[in-house]
Nucleic acid binder design. Structure first.
Lengths: 186, 186
DNA sequence: CGAATAAACGGGACAGCGTCCCGTTTTGAC
DNA sequence: GTCAAAACGGGACGCTGTCCCGTTTATTCG
């Protein structure tokens, strides 16, 4: 087996996650690395060593919530009246998650290579879930069949991007309209 | 009347607009100021003097197309079979415009104060047009009546944000779905 | 036509940020 | 207790937006 991590390294990683979570709330997911390092009481190199890219850090901070979202898919499918209702509710949950994380929407719809690990993670974890929901709704004849889960996720992410300022902008409602647009007579 | 601009200043402004248009195409609307200045053969201060913020430069570069978009609203309304058809076609035009300008979508759904002049201009020029289209469609009973033009524009902008990479992502189709979601029975 | 003045210019100084290296400290095994 | 490896911290570097200042150029008026 591989060598265990040193105790101090593990402690630092936890401090870093706590600090990042805290800073993300107040300053968004694009807060300066230095701020996070300072809050955790470590040097900038340490954060860079534990989390090579900002995306890795974001992934680590929100892993639990993403997992919960992934698990919610099948559960909603089982507990909702129709697959379409499950889909709508899942999208609502996704929007709530993204919107409450300052700047996450923008990051999700950015194509900066720096965020590739984040995209990969979201895609790997959530696209299959959303695909399941879409397929069920398609199978039930509730929605059009030409929409790709990845495309829809990216679209909803984009919808959430400009939701920070309270410009009378309700991302959840818009996402609802988008989902409504999926309905079809066929 | 106010003093006329100096001839060289006017020439520089034109060079700057040409250079910016050219650089925007290849490097997106967030290309470094220095690159644009270099391409125009002027110093960085000159560009900064003519266009205090990046948003002002973007506005100047795309003014013609935005104007065209604004004028297209009433025309489409007059030439389309139904207000909803006009709305759908106008949104298509808007999406085409945004998508073909690298990074413009991201900028439109950003809330960086740096881009405020851009938001103001788009809002001032296009929101009334879109409101006209929406009102007509609402009046015809074709769509729901609780959607705000500004909100919709921002939403469509967000949809366009992640359209640069060819991640099998078709912003126009997604926007179409969103518009379809506006339809209603009542 | 030529000098004076105001406008405009160019390039560099400065600060903030991400990235990454290197001399130093800490840890854990023997 | 000793020592090699692992981890650390802070600073150097490069890139960017912002802005200032000494110089150049256009216009105007005698």
């Amino acid at each position: 087996m591989t060598r265990l991590k040193r105790a101090d390294a593990q402690r630092n990683e936890e401090s870093l996650l706590d600090a990042a979570a805290s800073v993300f709330v107040t300053a968004g997911v694009e807060a300066p690395i230095r701020d996070i390092a300072a809050k955790a009481g470590v040097g900038t190199a340490t954060i860079y060593r534990h989390f090579p890219t900002r995306a890795d850090l974001i992934v680590a901070v929100y892993r639990h919530q993403v997992e919960a979202l992934a698990e919610a898919g099948p559960e909603l499918l089982a507990s909702s009246a129709t697959p379409f209702a499950a889909l709508a509710r899942w999208i609502d949950g996704f929007v709530d998650f993204v919107v409450t994380k300052q700047g996450l929407g923008a990051v999700l719809s950015s194509d900066d290579p720096c965020f590739d690990p984040l995209h990969s993670y979201f895609l790997a974890r959530l696209v299959p879930v959303l695909t399941g929901l879409l397929d069920a709704a398609i199978g039930a004849g509730e929605i059009r069949s030409d929409v790709d889960a990845q495309e829809l996720m990216r679209g909803v992410g984009g919808l959430c991007a400009g939701a920070s300022g309270n410009h009378r902008y309700d991302a959840r409602r818009l996402a609802g309209i988008l989902v409504a647009g999926l309905r079809q007579s066929g």
